[in-house]
Design a protein around this nucleic acid. Structure first.
Length: 478
RNA sequence: CGGGACGUAGCGUAACUUGGUAUCGCGUCUGAUUUGGGUUCAGAAGACUUGCAGGUUCAAAUCCUGUCGUCCCGACCA
């Protein structure tokens, strides 16, 4: 099995250089390509198809929970952007600004949206008049631009695709539960679709979104031991409402400012999926997001009956509702095996003359490499069963990794050791910003979140020694 | 934005130190071959000349300056 000779077109091994392995996969699995402009990538069909699967799932969940899709302009006047102070301070360093229109200089310069809070607020100020207009549950699918200094495919780009939900509510309570409800949907996406166990929790004041009162997030630990913030949901209170003059008449006839949320996930999720599940043979896609869920490979395709039989099987599986492709190109079977493994297709069906004689096919699972002989009569149930098993195995493997890389620490030495090992250093915290800063200074790790699932295991802050009541997860982050 | 590495055909590379018109492999194309893990053989094309722009020189992939981009390590962020 071991092949020491590295093939010319093989990818870098994970243990040799994890970052290079990641870049190799992005390119060799044809997910993306670089464009001439730094940080702006081309989403190739196979990569974009993964995004479409994520979109399909989320869009359905959003609509089921009463949200409507809208589309806002991609530019924001600088004067408008400056209305909410903390927000502008948070984003100012990373905005791209258009200064010329035609041949004229633009006096109120146009910011290419890094996020659309202010556009939504400006619009909401016009359309919200009464409690009868609430809640407003809007979402948009779009791209945003942030002038990032260092960029990596999917994980951090100058432009990325995402969805941003922006909602307005009568009460503080309702808004806060909206923010939490949407975070739950993101958590579901991880568990049920991407096979990624996210940690959910609330951000510290230091790490929260510019302008938000509370930021909730889903966090993943990747195989190189670094944490990745994979999605956020914010509760804004009515700070923006006041800044933008959004007022509604209450049931009692008074004028009040509504309470706001926003929430988003981006194509960064593609990066998280690649890293969480991939191996040295390439991408390993969870069945729910795989653009092709089952690949049919005819073996000895020149023998009579093989290709028609393979196509028949493809049709049969397609009729079950799965995304399936029959690769009847004139490459050798071995070549196709490697190629579709690189592309991470969860399940492979091999169809050859010997199989046809015995009225069977060979099924091969991408995640484990396991091969299973399957009588044609049982194909339908077996495919369904295996795709479910593959999802579960992938999730369980990722969960096991997460648990093995979550270390409870009681002092700074243990904290260092845990961060060195990779993953979360879970510690009790006094809640002081100073201690958070100190850890960052000493270790470069940041507080990822205070997990919802608290379960305290001590009462002393390892940094200052004062009383600690909160459990916090620290990690080196992307 | 700091520190480091790099940019030569689609990909990976040689030549750079010591200037003289670009090497090899994979891939691609054509024709065969291909029964179970990147099949084998034969032939062909592919660089409007070395990321881009200047400079030095009789002559630049090679030396100098600038710039753009990629990767890694930091600081900042979905």
């Amino acid at each position: 099995m071991e092949n020491n000779q590295i093939k010319n077109d093989a990818i870098t091994r994970q243990e040799d250089d994890f970052a290079q392995w990641y870049t190799d996969i992005c390119k060799k699995a044809e997910l993306m390509d670089y464009s001439p402009v730094k940080g702006f990538i081309i989403y190739r069909p196979y990569g974009y198809a993964i995004w479409e699967q994520i979109q399909n799932y989320l869009d359905r969940r959003f609509k089921e929970t009463g949200h409507e899709n809208v589309y806002m302009p991609m530019v924001i006047q600088e004067s408008l952007f400056k209305k909410e102070k903390e927000h502008v301070e948070g984003f100012a360093p990373e905005t791209l600004i258009a200064t010329i229109g035609g041949k004229e200089e633009i006096e109120d310069r146009l910011i290419i949206r890094p996020t659309s809070e202010v556009l939504f607020c400006d619009h909401y100020a016009k359309i919200i008049k009464s409690y009868r207009d609430l809640p407003k549950l809007y979402n948009q699918w779009c791209s945003v631009v942030r002038w990032e200094k260092t960029t990596r495919p999917f994980l951090r780009g100058a432009e990325f695709l995402w969805q941003e939900g922006h909602t307005m509510h009568e009460t503080e309570e309702e808004a806060r539960s909206e923010a939490l409800r949407m975070l739950e949907i993101y958590d579901d996406l991880g568990r049920d679709v991407l096979a990624i166990p996210f940690s959910t929790g609330i951000k510290t004041d230091k790490e929260k979104f510019a302008g938000a009162l509370e930021t909730y997030s889903i966090e993943a630990v990747l195989p190189d031991g670094k944490a990745l913030q994979s999605g956020t949901s914010h509760y804004f209170g009515n700070g923006f409402s006041k800044a933008f003059g959004i007022q509604f008449q209450t049931r009692e006839g008074k004028l009040e400012n509504p309470y706001q949320t926003s929430w988003g996930v981006s194509t960064r999720l593609i990066g998280a999926t690649i890293m969480t599940h991939g191996d040295d043979n390439g991408l390993v896609l969870p069945p729910k997001v795989a653009p092709i869920q089952v690949i049919i490979i005819p073996v000895a395709a020149n023998k009579p009956g093989v290709v028609p039989a393979a196509k028949e099987i493809a049709k049969r599986i397609s009729n079950l509702g799965y995304r399936v492709k029959c690769d009847d190109s004139d490459k050798s079977a071995g070549w196709k095996f490697s190629e579709w493994e690189m592309k991470g297709v969860p399940l492979r069906v091999e169809v050859g003359p010997r199989d046809l004689e015995k009225e069977q096919v060979i099924l091969a699972k991408r995640n484990t490499g396991e091969k299973i002989i399957c009588p044609l009569s049982e194909l339908d149930t077996k495919v369904k069963e295996l795709l479910e098993v593959i999802h579960k195995e992938m999730y369980d493997k990722a969960l096991k990794y997460l648990l093995e890389h979550t270390t409870e620490v009681h002092n700074l030495d243990e904290l260092n050791a845990a961060l060195e090992k990779g993953g979360y250093a879970k510690m009790m915290w006094c809640g002081d910003r100073a201690c958070e800063d100190k850890i960052k200074e000493l270790t470069s790790a940041t507080a990822r979140c205070l997990p919802f699932n608290q379960m305290p295991f001590g009462d002393t802050c390892p940094v200052c020694g004062k009383k600690a009541t909160k459990v916090v997860l620290f990690a080196r982050a992307y």
